[in-house]
Design a protein around this nucleic acid. Sequence first.
RNA 1: CGGGGCAUGGCGCAGUCUGGUAGCGCAUCUGCUUUGGGAGCAGAGGGUCGGCGGUUCGAAUCCGUCUGCCCCGACCA
Length: 568
Amino acid sequence: MRLTKLPLNTFKEAPAEAKVISHQLMLRAGLIRRLASGLYSWLPLGMRVLHKVQQIIREEMDSSGALELFMPIVQSAELWKESGRWEEYGPELLRIEDRHNRQFCLGPTHEEVITDIARNELKSYRQLPVNYYQIQTKFRDEIRPRFGVMRAREFVMKDAYSFHLDEESLVEGYQTMRETYDRIFTRLQLRFQIVQADTGTIGGNKSEEFHVLADSGEDTIAYSESDGFAANIETVPLPPTDKPNSTSKKDLQRIETPNVRTIEELCKFLKVAPEQCLKTLLVQGTDTPAVALFLRGDHELNSLKVQKLDAVAKPIQMLRSEEVQTVTGMEPGFLGPEGLDLPMYADQAAAAMSDFVCGANEMNYHYKNANWQRDWRLPTIVDLRNAVAGDPTPSGNSILSIAQGIEVGHIFQLGEKYSAAMNARVLDSTGKSRVMQMGCYGIGVTRVVAAAIEQNNDTRGIIWPDAIAPFDVILIPINMNKSYRVKEATEDLYNRLQEAGFDTLMDDRDQRPGVKFADADLVGIPNRLVIAEKAWDQGQIEYKSRRSADTEMIDIDGLIKFLKTKRS
RNA sequence: CGGGGCAUGGCGCAGUCUGGUAGCGCAUCUGCUUUGGGAGCAGAGGGUCGGCGGUUCGAAUCCGUCUGCCCCGACCA
């Protein structure tokens, strides 16, 4: 590709709307443009990257034995009613009507459609197992799209669905996909981690997520290398802690704390650590206006764990400030265990506290040196919090570390959730009709691009992994317009590189070298060749890897061979 | 949806408090010079100041309202 044939607008400054580095760089380098909130166009340069990612995914899916197909984005409401998700899915499902007032939705995922296909096409156990996949646009009307393509409303996803006669086959198929994903993300040259996960709205039994490790990731992962354990933090169970010794000699003190509402303010005001504070949260109850939850001040509520409590209404909802007032007569910020006539649950760590600080259930007052049992009945003790660094692993053999991750893949053993609801059956070898077992497997294709940039960038711009770079090599001629020899050499080199199978970009623009270098760095092409008269006359060319700071001189004769060693 | 902020040429911003007919940098176009890390000079084009309504002799600026976007919380590939 000649740069004079590729309209490329790069920006020195990132648009103000972009906050994370991948979003900024994708806009600056001219990969994507925003149409509306959560909707992005992919420009030609970005499209090349997207294609390379898709190509790798296709190759690995195909070689795993999966079969590619293509399903509509627009799906009929009947199918969704059949699976029960028309009601279940909520406002994230964009519902539309056609001219005949028939109801449709934009597919956020394709379980319903594929199950419909499967029940029509698959009749016999002899046809199983089957794994269908597609690379398609999905639409989810996210409450808050953000970070550009990383959490867009419209995005490209590779989704695969496997069908099996029995659970054993499902587990086998799942394992194959797990290995396939491992190969895909390895080929994409991403640093990733497989973690145990919750199944969320998709449903099913077992599921694992593939996370690209990056500080900007929205998910938190707890792991221990020595223990071989990794899980999404929301799923990590925590072992019981020791019970408090209720033999404290300190007296309960009531202290005036004017306008001190948050744990942070409380710590500053009373000069105590968050670990000594008790946090009281009110969530909506199933049969009661509220349920009180107690956590240690430095801990975070784990909403999945909370939702397992029967007394808590699902989905979990924190009481709003006014609701807290109606229920307790108190503003949140001064809540505590004192005299609360509500179902109460204490996290294990909160229950183990002694001589703690907590709200006095009276405006502008807190208690100090509070103790369970002596001062108030100890609530039901449950596991309510997120793990933090230093917590034990479930095996108890090691200690957890915490990292941020971007979820780029998710694999599920769905079981019979959809096949049973939609009556997808086959005959087994005895002629008996059986509900098929299903697995489903997703990769966020557009998200992978953003994740790759999050992991690979510097102050100058993107540093593409070789496997997904829009071009392998960029040619930068110096003074091409003045020097006929440079022009000729560049053209010649361009042809030779293309023939040798390198995706080559030739910067034939009439620009100063500085501009070309800056754009090459910003766009992040892995290999750069500079053609200058003097060196060329000596049979040499300057090479620089995007990843390294230094240049080296290469003999032109050995150039192609040299570049091949650079290609992984 | 709740809380906070922003909206001025393609991008980044100033001007708004204190009303007087729109400006800077980058980008774009033309010419000359320049040519190894985002060049210099000279010139040019491009804005109903997010929309609507009001106050005023006069509104980017004041008031009302709507819309869009960004950030913080619940969703997810």
